[in-house]
Every structure is written in C-alpha cells, then in structure tokens.
Design a binder for these strands. Structure first.
Lengths: 194, 194
DNA sequence: CCTCAAGTTGAATATAGCCTCAACTTAGCT
DNA sequence: AGCTAAGTTGAGGCTATATTCAACTTGAGG
C-alpha cells in the first residue's frame, strides 16, 4: 500500500474513532471523511463497507476485553472478579457510544465471560441458574441506560449495573419464570439489534 | 368533522396501531397512509405531526396503566403488587413494539408507580434506597431486551425482568455506588431516547 | 526524469422519508 | 339540483445518506 494511502487510512480511523465515540455507530460516512480531511471516495477505497470501518476501529477491543477478563480471573474473590469484568466492559460502553452500540450487537463481546461465570458460580456467590446468555441482558440494559443518560446523567449506568448485580447474587435468587436463551438465540438477538 | 373524515381518521388509527405494534414508532408515515388506504396528504390533514398520531394511537394507554396500578395497589402483598405492576407494564411493552418505544421515551409512564413503590418500601420488601427514577432502568432494560428478542426469543424479557426484580428486593440490597437520578434528569434522559 | 499503477476526487446517481400545496372531489346543507 | 366548505389527492420539492465511477493526480520503481 502506498504511503499516502496508509496515511489517509490512519486519518480516517482517527476521525471515525472520535465520531463513533461521541455519537454512536450510525454517524454519516460523509462526515467521517470530511473530518478526516479526505473525500468520501477515499473512505470507500479504504473501507468498502461501514462494517469494515467499524471492525478496523474496534479491532483492539477484543484484546482489551480479554485483558479485563484475564484480570477478573485472577481476582482473589471470584465474585469480585465477576463484578470487575462487567464493570470493566460497561466502562468501555460508557466511554464510547460506538462501542456501546457494538457491545449490544456483537455476540463475541461476552464470550470471554464463560470462565468468569463458571468460577463465580462454583464459589457460590453467583446464582447457579444464570447462563452466559443472561449476560446479554446486562449489556443491553446498560447500553440502553448509557444511551439515554450519557448527556444528562453520566454515571447513572453505575447505579443500573449495581442493581443488576444485586440480582445476580446467589443470595438474591428466586425461581426464574422461563428458561435461558440458547446461545444461538442470544446470538440471533444480538444480530437483530439494528 | 365530516363523516368521511371521521372514517379516514379511524382507518389511519387502525393502520398505525398495527404497524406501530409490529415495527415500532419509526414506521414510515407513507406506509401507514398506504395501509389505511388513504393518501399521505390525508394523513397529514388528520395528524399534523407524527407525535399527534402516536398520541392518538396510545391515548388509552395511560388509563390501562392506571388500571394496572390500581390493581397493584389493592394486592394483599405490597411486593406482589409492585411485581404485578412492573410485569403488567412490561407485558404491554412486549405486546406492542410501538408502546415499547413509547414507554422508554415517555416520562409519564412510570409516574403511577410512586404510591406502589412507597407501599412496597414501607412493607420492607422493596429496598429502601431505590427511587422512582430507578424504575427507568427497568423500563429501558426490558425495552432493549424486547426489541432484541421479540423475533427470536419472545418471552426472554420475563427472565430479564425476574433477574431485575431480584435485585430490587431488600434482601438483595448492597450499597449503591452513585445517587439516584433526579426526576428532571430522568425526564431529560427519556426525552433523549431518540 | 518518466512512467504508470495506485490512489484521490467530487459530481452524479440512487434511495428513502418528510412535508406541502394547487387542483380536484364530495358531503351535506338549502 | 346547486352550492360551497370540507376533505382528498399525489406529484413535486426538500433533506439526508449511501454509493459509484470517469477523470484527474501522484508516489515510487527503473
């Protein structure tokens, strides 16, 4: 790739990064190009679809989440680790409206939770009747609260999350009315998010 | 009003009712007119703005919610009443994607909860540190889950709600990290929902 | 310095939805 | 039946965004 092309790609990613963060994934592509100081044609040259651009912008997030998961797994208290992981992911959501959208749509986001859930359940702190698929409720819920409150009451999501976490403790458990979603149902539901 | 105008108004409301229910509040007005068998001009004659149409379609919902609240207040067990109210509202959300959108945007929806919350807190079952504003988290959360799952896992919202309710019991309460939203913050946040 | 593949440009095309209004139609009154 | 205010119509203008592509420009190898 020619060096001007590399440079433009960089500028586009930078612009997209900022605009996605401020306004979510649905920002107009023309605006991203304008902000980057290139033409819309160049944007299409570098990224054939919006999806490609989004993937490039959030390429490193999987690693970030993996790191948060790693730290969570080494926490002394499995429950604290569980809380730390969800808090960490939700902080990413709150800090970037683009990732907030992405987390709600992208199934891979919660996969690293499997071992964290397992450990927290084995410790007895996390209720035994929840599954990975139930974590989508946490993500969707906090995503909705972040979207609604980011301008008017930033930080409110922490309260939402805390209430949700209190419902996930073994000590809070009451019988659940319906079976958990299957993984494929959860995945399909995330795809449905727009 | 002339009787053909009344008739068209009726047909428009019927069409809007169905399309809102199936697809949410953002259905194109042209499609509503077409479904009603009238022109777009007639739609605008009867309803000057989308908001007017939405208000007309969901005019009776306030009364429905009030009735659910009334029943909730006469429940023997205040906690059961609280659960019944939230379940009732969420059932309305799940049954109608238009109302699902509206509930998340319209501040008035949860106002009838004040007395229900008060009673449930006085009984000791509902944790004392939550406020009316916290109920927006329940509505936003379930709204997000309904939107995501209505096609792929209908009924999943009941599980989300049950987990959320378990977090609202006194017995589940742990200290909350941030103060509740003020009523005006909550209202502003609901307005922000699109 | 020449060349040309690689890259950039932005006007043009396409699609979608909102909204208006001048021309036409009709209900309902006398 | 004739009148007219009320109502209907839908093409057309507007805005916003996506997407393409023929003409132009330029980096870099020889």
């Amino acid at each position: 790739m020619r060096k001007d092309a590399v440079h433009n790609r960089e500028r586009l990613l930078e612009a997209a990064r900022r605009l996605f963060a401020d306004r979510g994934l649905d920002v107009p592509l023309e605006e991203i190009a304008r902000t980057a100081g290139v033409s819309i044609g160049t944007l299409y040259n570098r990224f054939a679809t919006r999806k490609d651009l989004v993937e490039a912008v959030f390429e490193d997030r999987a690693a970030t989440v993996a790191a948060i998961a790693e730290r969570a797994l080494t926490a002394d208290d499995p429950w604290e680790g569980f809380v730390a992981f969800l808090t960490g992911v939700c902080e990413l959501q709150a800090a970037d409206l683009g990732y907030n959208d992405l987390a709600a749509r992208d199934g891979k986001g919660i996969e690293p939770m499997l071992r964290i859930i397992d450990r927290a359940q084995k410790s007895g702190a996390l209720r035994g009747d929840v599954t990975l698929a139930d974590m989508t409720f946490v993500i969707w819920g906090v995503a909705a609260t972040v979207r609604a409150t980011v301008r008017t009451a930033p930080g409110a999501w922490r309260r939402h999350l805390a209430l949700t976490l209190d419902g996930l403790r073994s000590t809070a458990a009451h019988e659940l009315p319906v079976p958990p979603m299957s993984i494929s149902e959860a995945r399909a539901a995330m795809d449905e998010c727009r």
